[in-house]
């Protein structure tokens, strides 16, 4: 029993990875990427001119840029606002969303502000921010938070709402206090939705980070983009965008991984492309 058990356990990850590659989306993603890169290359070579460098030039520029101190300085600077702003939106957004989900009266008073936060073009807030807190790190952090906090709130609220009411009733029959209901039912029950909100918020935070640097304080990645635009260095401009994209995708993949690890019971529902069969 032990021998077969061990071999099954060691074999499984390899086969499932292979299966994932074949049945899953990886193969298709590589294929579409190849088509996209070829089209970019051809267009860039013949019609791109100074505005659109070919794919190969962009790739070379990306590698070059990764070797320059300027990039790493920009990365460090930008990510300060990203990390602080994102953490603030999680720390503020999760409790806010949970309370809104649990207590309808709180929601009745605040729903309109949430809607405002959801639909306001955040770029319009930038001048106001600059006037009140200046060009420093703080205003960048605030903007990143404004961009991302809504996702956290809305999803945490939805997480509480979709909890099966009979679980709360069940815990009441065993004499659960409100604190116990929170700790043992509401928070674990809302966790999958909270994690989804956190992942979506991460994407919005990256957007906020770049927008604030482009429109308000030209530092970090945004500063690099503006600089390369001024110098008409299109390959490096594109390379910067590629690096921002790469960072965003890596962060979201990491968030997805944490999401799966933290809420294994919700795995089939959470990932729409489940490979379970």
């Amino acid at each position: 029993m032990t021998a077969s058990g061990v071999s099954a356990a060691t074999r499984r990850p390899a086969t499932s990875l292979l299966r994932k590659a074949v049945h899953g989306t990886l193969l298709y993603q590589l294929l579409t990427f190849a088509v996209f890169a070829t089209a970019w290359e051809v267009y860039g070579r013949y019609w791109g001119g100074i505005l659109l460098p070919p794919f190969s030039d962009t790739a070379v520029a990306t590698v070059e840029l990764l070797g320059e101190a300027e990039l790493w300085k920009a990365l460090w600077l930008s990510n300060q606002a990203l990390v602080l702003g994102f953490l603030a939106s999680v720390v503020l957004g999760v409790p806010a969303g949970l309370l809104l989900g649990r207590f309808r009266t709180v929601e009745r008073y605040t729903d309109i502000y949430l809607s405002i936060l959801l639909v306001t073009p955040m770029a319009a807030v930038i001048p106001l921010l600059v006037m009140s807190v200046g060009f420093g790190l703080l205003s960048r952090v605030i903007l990143v938070t404004l961009f991302s906090v809504v996702m956290v709130i809305v999803n945490a609220r939805a997480g509480i709402r979709q909890i099966d009411a009979s679980l709360i009733e069940m815990s009441r029959t065993y004499g659960a206090s409100e604190a116990q209901i929170w700790r043992r039912i509401l928070i674990p029950g809302a966790l999958p939705a909270i994690m989804t909100g956190v992942r979506l918020a991460l994407g919005r935070a990256v957007t906020g980070m770049v927008i604030v640097e482009l429109l308000m304080v030209s530092v970090g990645f945004g500063g690099l983009i503006l600089e390369y635009r001024a110098l008409f260095e299109a390959p490096k401009l594109y390379a910067t965008i590629v690096i921002i994209l790469a960072e965003a995708l890596a962060l979201i993949a990491a968030a997805r991984w944490v999401e799966r690890k933290a809420t294994p019971w919700a795995a089939p529902r959470n990932s729409s492309r489940s490979t379970r069969d």
Binding site: D164, S166, L167, E169, M170, Y174, P188, G189, T263, A266
Partner: peptide, 12 residues
Amino acid sequence: AMVFQNFALLPW
């Protein structure tokens, strides 16, 4: 103690 029609088990 109560037993529920939809089981009411904690999925996690």
